[in-house]
Design a protein around this nucleic acid. Structure first.
Length: 434
RNA sequence: GACCCCAUCGUCUAGCCUGGCUUAGGACAUCGCCCUUUCACGGCGACGGCGCCGGUUCAAAUCCGGCUGGGGUCGCCA
């Protein structure tokens, strides 16, 4: 009986593309289970396809794994292990279990029946395979996936292979190889696939698939891992929000579902919004600053206290940081246009009324939201207008939008000078229309 | 087509293993109401599901079989 320290789990990405949602979840489940039982977790880079493997992808994959909050004890590269694969191929040849043909090495097998005891699915029985041979070394000398995978999982002492269910049909061939090589067979756990809204595999057609895209859109890694956790697994007790740390204690690969899960951006947005709302103003302000700076959405001289006010205004209105790009433009720049849906609001000319309001606002010394609200309400009363008749065009004047944070807070944020200027701009707009 | 996997609200799921405690629970989305200057947030509520047919049983979402439906794999890609 082996103790858990001798147990090992792995994630084996191929650097032929960016880390995608599905891979990230497989990695997460494998890593989490390793943490849960105190086992080692290793990364194995399956870069045997020298043509398609790129350094750029490798870097991004490792970066994404770290970004999500995971780590690894060891990392291996299959491209550095060709000698090992060759020696095992030679062994099979010498035993008559494989032969050279057309420059490649073929593994030959008699197949009757293979049974696997999958940790998430239970017993799976194969009684038929389409072929009786399998290429193990390609004619260019590189090993095929099924061969290098078997040798490495055995040599690296992987106790349970956790991978996507698209690998179920590879498993019988692999088991035949373990047996021919007299290597011990690990356990298997095939996790369900993540599907697109149309029910098929995730693809670019149905939105972002790579982790880096989600990062760029301003999703938090905690929100992504939280969401991924909910796809195929449940923490129980009707919980939706759970940290990686908590999940580490209660996750069990045996409790993973068998059913494919459709990826829902709506739910991810909700979870990300929950995380945004749970941040302190301080932290969120720093995050927002970095995000907008990186996208050149901030002027040079912006100060933290101004950003902090903005942060308070938008914290509960956004579900991801990229929402801020359009929302906050008016906070930093004067050259915005009156946007979509504002035509109706601006359709009747209120230049007289807004001028009146503007003069009243000018009288305020302490331009804070209480004073502003008082004056504003008073002005509306004097004009015998409902508050909203003035509110909506004023918001458009100040922000260019029909929706947004509370008007009086927005006015306080911008300050008297900008408010009066922008109100005047609207008045001019009406006059020029007439 | 062959092989394999899967099947609870539109979506993610709890319950299923160890049948009765279930008028099937929660979340997202949607809709309505409240809050309110808009949009959000928050609160309350509504809508909505055990794919079908048989069997086992006093009793089935839960066990068994078939059907149907969906998905995956069939590369000298991984």
């Amino acid at each position: 009986m082996s103790n858990s320290k001798s147990k090992r789990f792995r994630f084996a990405p191929s650097p032929t593309g960016y880390l995608h949602i599905g891979g990230a979840r497989t990695c997460l489940f494998s890593w989490l289970y390793a943490q849960k039982i105190g086992a080692e977790f290793i990364l194995r880079i399956e870069d045997t396809d020298l043509e398609r493997s790129k350094k750029e992808y490798l870097d991004e994959i490792l970066e994404s794994i770290k970004w999500l909050g995971m780590d690894w004890d060891e990392i291996f590269y299959q491209s550095k292990r060709f000698d090992i694969y060759h020696s095992y191929a030679e062994k099979l040849i010498s035993e008559g279990k494989a032969c050279k043909k057309e420059g490649a090495v073929f593994f030959k097998y008699d197949f009757e029946r293979v049974e696997i005891n999958d940790l998430v699915r239970g017993k799976i029985v194969f009684t038929e395979l389409p072929k009786d041979e399998e290429v193990i070394i390609k004619s260019d000398g590189s090993p095929t996936y099924n061969f290098s995978c078997v040798i490495d999982d055995a040599l690296m002492g992987i106790s349970c292979v956790i991978r996507g269910e698209d690998h179920i049909s590879n498993t019988p061939k692999q088991i035949l190889m373990y047996e021919a090589l007299k290597l011990s067979i690990p356990e298997f756990a095939h996790v369900p696939l993540i599907l697109s809204a149309s029910g098929g595999r995730m693809s670019k057609r149905y939105g972002a698939t790579s982790l880096r895209e989600y990062k760029q859109m301003g999703y938090f890694s905690e929100a992504i891992t939280n969401y991924l956790l909910l796809l195929g697994w449940s923490p129980g007790n009707n919980r939706e929000i759970i940290s990686l740390g908590e999940a580490q204690d209660i996750f069990d690969i045996k409790n993973v579902n068998k059913t494919g899960a459709v990826f829902s951006l709506d739910k991810l947005n909700w979870i990300n919004g929950e995380y945004i709302r749970s941040k302190s103003i301080n932290e969120l302000t720093r995050i927002i600053k970095a995000y907008l700076e990186q996208r050149s959405c901030l002027p040079q001289d912006v100060d933290m206290s101004y950003l902090e006010k903005i942060c308070r205004l938008f914290q509960e209105r956004i579900s991801k940081l990229s929402d801020l790009v359009d929302w906050t433009r008016f906070c930093f720049y004067d050259d915005f246009k009156y946007g979509e849906g504002t035509e109706k609001i601006l359709s009747n000319d209120l230049s007289k009324e807004i001028s009146f309001l503007s003069e009243r606002l000018r009288e305020i010394d302490n331009f804070d939201k209480e004073q502003i609200e008082n004056k504003f309400r008073k002005a509306a009363g004097d004009l015998d207008l409902k508050l909203r008749v003035l509110v909506h065009p004023t918001r458009v004047a100040l922000t260019g939008r029909k929706d947004g944070p509370g008007l009086f807070e927005t006015m306080e944020l911008l300050g008297k000078e900008k408010v009066l200027k922008r109100l005047n701009r609207l008045i001019q707009h009406w006059l020029s229309q007439a």
